[in-house]
């Protein structure tokens, strides 16, 4: 597959802080791509650099094989949906949406036509004469989205688009974003710190940490084959056991746990990653301990079991099988389901 947007070895420094360190990402046409990471990881800097609102110290960015960085910010075929939405309070919904079209000096009929169309798509045609201050959070978000896609950009950038919405509106908007992306046929790049959001919405994810890309993969790959301890910890819920590798096992805080086949040398520091859903409760197990508490999550429960490690072991369990608190749990898993990573 050919690369549509190619980010090659870009770096950016603010004083003592290396915001971006030699970042390279290739994004495909019509892809829904997520830049994921904790705050301060450089994802927003990268997004703003793509929009031209931030300059880069070094590196090359090409869009459809043309240099993007030499294009001034107001001429880039890249539109950004701001985290704060940045709707113009002195303009009504229609004028907000038409603002970008008017800057392209299109004729009035076309501006009207396109603005109406996009407002219809986001379901806000009735609100077109309202001011942003008269809209709900979800409506504001739709206006911001409409204002950006009406320009028919090659790439739409979304900066934490759902963070200001409450949970219910949020999942609705997630679906809506996916639908729009399909319909409009635009490449979407979303910045988020919420791994669940990235996992559910994106085709591929670049996980970033301290200005560097840690892993680029599909959500499923990233969950099932994390490259580093950071990825395993950041994505999903997992039990991480740091210890010293033996042959076919790993010694963790004085206990020996079975380990999957690995390239790592015996005796090296390693971390065993065990997802809660890969552990089963039984009458016997590799480890056992006392059930401390259980948290109810929709269809299943997450149990916290004290097995004598520094941290409690998390086990997912069907609702009707949750044992009473204080009872002894025997935990077993197949070594092949666990993941072994080098520990830095």
């Amino acid at each position: 597959m050919s690369s549509f947007l190619s980010i090659a070895a870009v770096s950016k420094r603010y004083g003592d802080i290396q915001a971006l360190n030699n970042v390279s990402i290739d994004i495909r046409e019509n892809e829904f791509f997520a830049l994921l990471g904790p705050s301060g990881c450089g994802k927003t800097t990268l997004l703003r650099a793509l929009a031209g609102l931030e300059s880069l110290d070094s590196g090359v960015v090409t869009l459809a094989n043309e240099d993007l960085l030499s294009v001034p910010a107001n001429k880039r075929p890249v539109n950004l949906m701001f985290q704060s939405y940045a709707l113009f309070p002195h303009l009504n919904v229609f004028d907000n949406v038409a603002y970008g079209l008017r800057r392209e000096k299109l004729d009035k009929a076309e501006i009207d036509h396109r603005a109406h169309d996009v407002l219809k798509t986001v379901g806000l045609l009735d609100q077109k004469d309202r001011r942003p201050s008269q809209l709900s959070g979800g409506q504001k978000q739709r206006v911001a989205l409409a204002r950006a896609i009406v320009k028919r950009p090659k790439i739409l950038l979304l900066d934490e688009p759902l963070s200001a919405l409450d949970k219910k509106v949020r999942s609705e908007m997630q679906l809506e974003l996916k639908r729009l992306q399909h319909e409009a046929g635009i490449t979407f790049i979303i910045v988020t710190h919420d791994q669940e959001e990235a996992m559910s919405i994106a085709d591929r994810i670049a996980l970033m940490d301290k200005g560097e890309v840690v892993q680029i993969a599909t959500p499923v790959e990233m969950y099932s084959a994390p490259k580093t301890k950071f990825v395993a910890d950041f994505i999903g819920t997992s039990n991480l056991f740091s210890g010293t590798l033996g042959t076919g096992n790993i010694s963790v805080q004085g206990k020996t746990l079975p380990a999957p086949a690995t390239q790592l040398a015996s005796g090296s520091k390693a971390v065993l990653v065990l997802r809660p859903e890969d552990i089963t409760l039984g009458t016997t197990g590799q480890i056992s301990g006392t059930l401390v508490s259980s948290n109810f999550y929709g269809g299943s429960s997450l149990l916290f079991v004290d097995c004598g490690f520094e941290q409690l072991v998390k086990v997912s369990c069907a609702l009707n099988q949750v044992p009473p608190a204080g009872s002894t749990c025997h935990l077993s898993w197949s070594a092949a389901d666990s993941i072994l990573l080098a520990d830095a």
């Binding site: 910010a73 107001n74 539109n79 701001f82 985290q83 704060s84 940045a86 603002y99 800057r103 950006a148």
Partner: peptide, 18 residues
Amino acid sequence: IDPAMKEAAINLGATPAQ
């Protein structure tokens, strides 16, 4: 004024003067 306002205008195609 939210600095994003001016950035939004530029992102939508306005020159800095506009």
